[in-house]
């Protein structure tokens, strides 16, 4: 057991997946010699060679499309899109093909691929490098959408994503890449893809978040505890398919729900969670559902990005609002 960063955990999972299954192919821009711009694929080329670690030309739609062809042939491609801001070019391929190859052919052809992409704000990046497109992908039937929030979950979830028989969008929060560190056993154990994780038990309010927002949310929960408010924190982890039961069960105990997302408010994934809780758990609620989210603006440039992204203070303010209902 050793302590690694989230990006190192991604690297460990990729190495493990390639070691255990010769069908796993890693492809993307600069993933080979350079080891990926964030070093997520570092060392793979040396270990597995050019056949299985492919530096691609700069063509995102084709990276996704080639992965689909490989997957249909029984390989397990793990494609990297350098930043989520450039994954929009892959939506056509993922939506019109990857997500529905199985359905269209009644299971004759399938698409066991992973599209990995680092995103989210908070690293003072140039524009287009801080996007949070998870809801866009989660809206696509036939895709699974996973976002890890710790090194251990990055490792376990990525392994499961690669082993999954269907296409998975795996969004990695760049903001946590190096600051999020934790013990990873590197034992090849995957984590279930259809499950959310209760990171902190609590009785007064349920805080639901994913990705980089988990850090802020846990910090808020810590401060709330000092004020005598016990917040339960749930890491959704797999947005699609959503583990509704874990959230409903928590809300049944706490009676209050705050959803935290970095992405813009409108049509964000928080809206889906809120709708499900309103639909199934309304009678357990003692306060309106609160959403703490990014704004419906374009992600601002680095100098003001911290005003856009929900932080501990905004999360706590959201909690105070739901706590104001007796």
């Amino acid at each position: 057991m050793s302590e690694v960063s989230l990006v190192q955990a991604v690297n460990l999972a990729l190495k493990r997946a390639m070691a255990e299954d010769p069908r796993v192919i890693v492809l993307g821009e600069d993933v080979g010699v350079d080891g990926g711009v964030f070093r997520a694929t570092e060392g793979l080329l040396a270990l597995y060679g050019e056949e299985r670690v492919l530096d691609t030309p700069l063509a995102e739609a084709a990276i996704a499309g080639v992965a689909i062809g490989l997957a249909a042939q029984g390989f397990r491609p793990v494609a990297e899109i350098q930043f989520t801001g450039f994954a929009y070019s892959c939506i056509d391929q993922m939506l019109n093909h990857a997500s529905r190859l199985r359905t269209r052919t009644c299971g004759r052809l399938t698409c066991p691929m992973v599209l990995r992409s680092p995103g989210g704000g908070g690293i003072r990046a140039i524009e287009h490098h801080s996007e949070s497109p998870e809801a866009i992908f989660a809206h696509i039937p036939g895709l699974k959408v996973v976002i890890p929030s710790s090194a251990a979950r990055a490792y376990g979830l990525l392994l499961s994503a690669i082993r999954d028989p269907d296409p998975v969008i795996f969004l990695e929060p760049t903001r946590l890449y190096r600051v999020s560190r934790g013990e990873v056993a590197d034992d090849g154990a995957g984590l279930p893809l259809e499950r959310s994780f209760i990171l902190r038990p609590g009785t007064d309010v349920t805080l639901v978040a994913w990705g980089a927002m988990i850090r802020e949310t846990l910090a808020a929960a810590q401060q709330l505890a000092d004020e005598g408010i016990e917040a339960e924190v749930i890491d959704v982890a797999t947005l699609k398919p959503l583990d509704t039961a874990t959230i409903l069960d928590s809300v049944a105990r706490t009676g209050r729900l705050v959803v935290v997302q970095e992405a813009p408010l409108t049509c964000g994934f928080g809206a889906e969670i809120a709708a499900r809780v309103a639909g199934r758990g309304l009678m357990n609620l003692v306060a309106p559902i609160e959403r703490v989210a990014g704004y419906d603006t374009v992600m601002p440039y680095a100098r003001t990005e911290t005003f856009y992204m929900p932080d501990t203070a905004r999360i706590m303010a959201g909690v105070q609002r739901v706590m104001s209902y007796a």
Binding site: A61, V66, G69, P77, Q93, H97, L109
Partner: peptide, 20 residues
């Protein structure tokens, strides 16, 4: 592969299959 309706989007699949 089945028929491809989104025009031209089948081309990358062929590269993937051929790579396989």
């Amino acid at each position: 592969f089945p028929v491809c309706v989104p025009v031209g989007s089948n081309a990358p699949h062929a590269v993937g299959v051929a790579l396989a």
